[in-house]
């Protein structure tokens, strides 16, 4: 498996492992309207830090196990794959931002807007990783 595909798997799995519980918990226990909502902010912080920690440790382990490949810069196909995947992710992200910034302020507020924006960012990143993995698995660019 190419090193860049491993990195994409790591990013995707780290996001799924951390953000699925976060969004499930948040939808079942919507944060209250109090400002500042320190309890929810703490959950938000712990989730983000857990994700960063998994990603950091994963990168270190992958670099150790694929030292030669890890040192190589992205070649033209890696760049083409990344560019194409970013195009799909951008579509998801811009749709989400239109919903969050253009519609939700008139119907929702506070944490609902923040969490929807957060969700769309995570979804866009998942779409990016999934498309990178798909391209490497099918050997296309």
């Amino acid at each position: 498996m190419p090193y860049r595909e491993k990195i994409a798997w790591l990013s995707l799995l780290a996001m799924l492992a951390v953000f699925i519980p976060y969004f499930t918990w948040t939808s079942l226990n919507p944060p209250g309207p109090e400002i500042p909502n320190l309890k929810h902010m703490a959950l938000y912080a712990v989730t983000s830090l857990s994700w960063a920690a998994i990603l950091g440790i994963g990168h270190l382990l992958l670099r150790r196990s694929s030292q030669d490949e890890a040192k190589l810069p992205m070649d033209e196909r890696d760049i083409a794959i990344s560019h194409k995947a970013r195009g799909y992710a951008y579509g998801v992200l811009i749709t989400g931002m239109i919903v969050v910034g253009g519609f939700m302020p008139f119907t929702n507020g506070g944490w609902e807007i923040a969490n929807t924006a957060f969700f769309m960012i995570v979804l866009a990143e998942c779409v990016y990783c999934a498309n990178v993995i798909r391209a490497y698995r099918r050997h296309v660019a």
Binding site: P2, D75, R77, D78, A80, H139, V140
Partner: peptide
């Protein structure tokens, strides 16, 4: 030529057109 083995394999298989 400055690309990975996987890129050469993709080019050989006709799945990627190089620059």
């Amino acid at each position: 030529i400055g690309v990975t083995r996987q890129t050469i394999a993709a080019i050989e298989a006709g799945k990627y057109s190089p620059s």
